[in-house]
Design a protein around this nucleic acid. Sequence first.
DNA 1: TACTTTCCCATTGACGCCCATAAAAACCCA
DNA 2: TGGGTTTTTATGGGCGTCAATGGGAAAGTA
Lengths: 155, 155
Amino acid sequence: MKLFLSTYVNKIDSKGRISLPSSFRNILSKENKKEIILFKSIKFAAIDGCSYERINTISERIDNLDIFSEDQDDFSTSIFSEIVPTSLDKEGRFIIPNFLKKHANLKNEAAFIGQGNYFQIWHPKSALEKQKASRERIKANKKTLTSILINKSND
Amino acid sequence: MKLFLSTYVNKIDSKGRISLPSSFRNILSKENKKEIILFKSIKFAAIDGCSYERINTISERIDNLDIFSEDQDDFSTSIFSEIVPTSLDKEGRFIIPNFLKKHANLKNEAAFIGQGNYFQIWHPKSALEKQKASRERIKANKKTLTSILINKSND
DNA sequence: TACTTTCCCATTGACGCCCATAAAAACCCA
DNA sequence: TGGGTTTTTATGGGCGTCAATGGGAAAGTA
């Protein structure tokens, strides 16, 4: 199974283009090799991105939320109405729409951070802070990454 | 079951390459013979490493968490975005990314320390100190290696 | 026309692939 | 068991390819 892994910082050029990291490009399916989907992260000043296929999974999960809950409605509105299908150029670059750039405070560069089945685009500095905060929350819960990564048995 | 055992000190060459010890290479599965995973040790100035397979188990676990929960987000950020998938060349060498080299104070050589299901990469001197400290802690805790090695049923 | 987006080409540096060598380890056979 | 031979390892270096980036020109859009 292919996953979006690791972190890469790339530049936004004068035309607004930015390269999707090579290892992320390789994850896109052959049918939709040049297509990705972007949308505003609900919780963060960041952009979520994924392959076209992933949208189906997300929609299923939202469907599984209680149909009468406010959450369900909020999520589907936030996500689906603001989805931006985006295509890569021959070199693997794409253009981040202005409203998304604004949402994530992007100017000259952006950090791509792998999240397994999807990825996020952050202002590089915010990305570092986010990673640090996540680590510390996990530590505070007395869980160690190593134990998660290494131990065969889950507890 | 094959385990990462023993300690080896290898050189980092001018291109930044270092050989994964042969005995460690033999532990990697045939499917992913040329792929390992590196990540920052949380507790030490060292790098943790393991075979690529673990990723699959880990990602399944994370994927099964509630997609909107904070845990899910923390785990996927800390793990997926900070993991460094790395491939070995034909000779069994790989490149340690700069930010990891910095974290472990590595320059011209590095010590590989077997830890059973995973391994660590240390600055050779720090590795010695670490091993010494570990032995002394065990002594202080009045545990003997023999007791651990002899008794079958310890948990 | 003015502006935006895509296509194409060029550059640079990083990395992968290949071959070479010396030392160590494994092997073999008397 | 010892000594010689073969194989494996760790290491070094050349070179071609690819990724990230930049910019000009063409094509599309308003």
